[in-house]
């Protein structure tokens, strides 16, 4: 369990940023993951007083505050209308309602956790993160960055017309995923994101014409990733699951097209 000396509820992003430049500081989001770590810090910086807990919808995008909870993502009408069922599907298996009332979108994305359903889902969408100093950059680029002491302020998901579906395999219904897959589609292109391999989610983009059938296309997509073994499953099995689930998501998207 994490221990710290000082709790500071930041009054501005500037204050939070400055506090966070010290190695002995840490940003507290939902505190779900942070809490179970055995770390000792001087200062915990809380962003909850900065009005970052909403979801704003414009014609072009969804703007999700870093402190917005997973439960808000799960039940947000706008998100569920634009991406039918997607956010419900990628959140509903995360422990329980009480947990999702605490865990935040910002914490999930900033942590870039291997097991993150949220990261897997958002990576397959046209998603950007807004960093206090680093500005707005594509989520995929953020995923490749090393951890630094910047602050994730908002997540922006563009309404670029992609349709997306999500699937995961879990040992129990509320366990971490054994594999997490999200596929989105435009006319020509599939964006395939796979997490819990068990490494953090990565994205591959493939054209429909790259393979003859959806099965082959799924295998092509699955080939793009590296898989590893942990107590939940072997790398080999994870690759197999990826092939199966990505194929099924392709097929479901194709069915939707009619």
């Amino acid at each position: 369990m994490i221990k710290f000396k000082n709790y500071v509820k930041a009054e501005s992003l500037e204050e939070a940023y400055n506090l966070n430049q010290k190695k002995s500081s840490v940003i507290g989001a939902g505190m779900m993951w942070l809490k179970v770590q055995s770390r000792i810090k001087m200062t915990l910086v809380d962003l909850s007083g900065l009005g970052l807990d909403g979801i704003e919808e414009t014609d072009e995008e969804f703007v999700i505050g870093a402190m917005c909870t997973l439960r808000q993502l799960e039940i947000h009408e706008g998100l569920n209308e634009y991406f039918p069922g997607l956010f419900k599907e990628c959140t509903r298996s995360i422990v329980g309602v009480q947990f999702r009332n605490g865990a935040t979108a910002g914490g999930s994305i900033f942590g870039r956790f291997g097991f993150s359903d949220i990261l897997t889902c958002m990576l397959a969408l046209d998603t950007y993160v807004e960093l206090y100093k680093g500005g707005i950059i594509p989520l995929e680029e953020f995923c490749r960055q090393k951890f630094n002491r910047d602050i994730l302020v908002r997540i922006r998901i563009k309404k670029d017309g992609r349709r997306a579906l999500y699937a995961s395999s879990r040992m129990t219904k509320t366990d971490f995923p054994l594999i997490a897959c999200c596929v989105s589609a435009t006319d020509e292109t599939y964006y395939v994101s796979v997490g819990a391999r068990p490494g953090k989610a990565e994205l591959t983009v493939i054209k429909r014409k790259e393979a003859s059938g959806l099965k082959e296309l799924a295998e092509l997509a699955a080939d793009h990733f590296h898989y590893g073994t942990n107590q939940r499953g072997s790398g080999e099995y994870r690759k197999h699951l990826t092939e199966v689930y990505v194929k099924r998501l392709f097929m479901a998207l194709e069915r939707e097209e009619g």
Binding site: Y7, G30, M32, K35, Q98, N101
Partner: peptide, 25 residues
């Protein structure tokens, strides 16, 4: 202690929360 069991559930501002991972502050 790892936010998996729900035994510590209380309501904060009407919302069910896990008090074991909720800072008193």
């Amino acid at each position: 202690e790892t936010e998996n069991c729900g035994l510590c559930t209380v309501l904060v501002n009407g919302v069910s929360r896990l008090s074991c991972s909720y800072l008193a502050a």
